[in-house]
Amino acid sequence: MKAILTLLIINSLILISCGNNTTIEEDLLSSPPSNERRGRPQDNYECQISSSGHCIFTGDPHKTILKPGTDKILDREDQYLFSMEGAVALNSSGNILNASGRPAFDGDYLGYDPEHKEGLSSDAKAFHRVMATMFSIRNALMYDIAAITQTEWDILINELAIREVKNSTYTDGPTPRDNYYGRQGIFDLAKNPQGRNIHHEVMKFLEESGIFLLCHVTSDDFGQMLKDTHPEGHDPCQVAEITSKVPF
């Protein structure tokens, strides 16, 4: 009898253990891939309401940017550094970014490597210019919004405007995930967030703007690559609803 009870206890423990392992495996399979699994830095951004009422993001601004409407790369003090012709986008570790659908992240910056730039394809060169363009827009929305005027904003988003990227705002969705902001809508929201953490709205605008702009200035083959490698299986260039591409 004692042996039978011992056997029953052991079997019960095995069943419990197997059940727990199955649950863990199911959780791993059903959970969405993290940014790190997708080859992207982890999104740790938050914004905090400043004394001026703006939602200022944690982290650091891009230290080098492309001056809108020019080929001049500037630092944060508006000092000229080098030309966009030899500029490439790098991550925080100093590695040159591969052309992909990857959005800009904290720590990315523009460096000067004309030899590397010369050997890139036209799509890759366009990718680096998109990153440079988005660095300025990103700094404005995330870090410098208190000082940015409407006129300055219009200049910053000109590359988006001439391609009609993010023309409209929609905020009547059943959930916040269904809403989106256009170029003017996101500026108005950032200027007056009414005490809200607008992290999601700003990051969604930046990511979609960057990839829609990328769709405009690269080849159809590059657009297919963006679809094939999208972490959620979406076709961003189809979502962009491009009727006629406008290259740089």
Rank of each mutant, 00 (worst) to 15 (best):
E159W: 05
S52K: 11
N44F: 09
I65D: 02
C55T: 01
G19S: 10
T175W: 04
G69E: 06
L28F: 07
A99W: 03
P174A: 10
F222H: 04
H54D: 03
A3I: 15
L8R: 12
I157G: 03
T151N: 02
V130T: 13
M131D: 09
T149N: 02
Y180M: 05
M84R: 03
L66Q: 05
I242P: 00
E115D: 11
D188T: 11
I9D: 03
K204I: 11
Q42A: 13
K204T: 15
K72T: 14
A132T: 06
R196L: 06
C55K: 03
Q184D: 10
P68Q: 05
H116Y: 15
D178G: 07
G173N: 06
A126M: 09
I162R: 13
M225T: 13
V202E: 01
I96N: 02
K2T: 04
F205R: 02
D113Q: 08
I49F: 00
I198V: 06
E36T: 15
L13Y: 01
D106Y: 11
A190P: 05
T171V: 15
E152K: 03
T6A: 14
L189D: 02
I14E: 03
D71H: 12
R138H: 07
I186W: 00
P33H: 10
F127E: 00
F248G: 03
D27S: 14
E85P: 00
D78K: 13
L7T: 14
A3K: 15
D172L: 13
I9G: 00
N35A: 15
I211G: 04
K191E: 01
K125R: 08
N95L: 12
I14F: 08
D60M: 11
N44Q: 15
T243Y: 04
I211H: 03
Y45W: 09
E115L: 11
W153A: 01
S17N: 13
F57E: 06
I198F: 03
S12N: 08
G195T: 08
G173H: 07
M1C: 14
F135G: 06
L90Y: 12
G223Q: 09
K191C: 01
C237K: 02
N44S: 14
Y80H: 12
I49W: 04
V239D: 14
E46Q: 08
G59P: 05
Q42C: 07
I148F: 04
N20V: 15
F187R: 00
M84S: 10
P68C: 06
D123Q: 10
A126W: 01
A140V: 06
I16N: 00
Q48G: 05
R129M: 10
F187A: 04
D43C: 04
E207A: 10
K125P: 01
D27G: 07
T22G: 07
D154L: 09
G86F: 10
Y80L: 13
V88N: 09
